[in-house]
Amino acid sequence: MMTDRVILVGTIVVAGVYLFATAQIPVLEIGDPLGPKAFPRLLGLGLLIAAGLLFAEMRKDRRAPVPGAARVGSHDWRHLWVIAGVIVWTGAYYAAFERLGYVVATAIYLFALMAWFNRGRWVTNALASVLFCLLSYAMFVKLDVNLPKGILPF
């Protein structure tokens, strides 16, 4: 229920921001009578209607709560922190993607993730991350897919 409330507020905020941004689009009345704002305005209104429908669904659910509906407990936070960590680590990987190059950046990225999610199997993880990087790099270079070389000479 709390999640739905967040979605409801979020949807209304997005619709408001979108409609505001739509109003800021400059209009040149040449050739196109409808202009670039009309369709987005309909979408903004559509999103507000969808929020209204969600509100109606929430009221209906409040009257007839789903039996056995799971509540989000504090134990879920640990998993969210892990995912947050993966997101930050992925952001760092993307930052290093061009600087270090595909092979080096990806090998480090993969090894760290495997070390966390496939614990204790150091040799397998190291082999999997290095072999994957080298083989995929060779394959994509052969397919003319451009991947950054970075610090490596090849």
């Binding site: 990225y109 993969l110 495997m114 614990r119 993880n125």
Partner: peptide, 13 residues
Amino acid sequence: GILMPLIMAISAI
């Protein structure tokens, strides 16, 4: 634990 990181790398490619 090996497969998921690989899918992330393939996604980046």
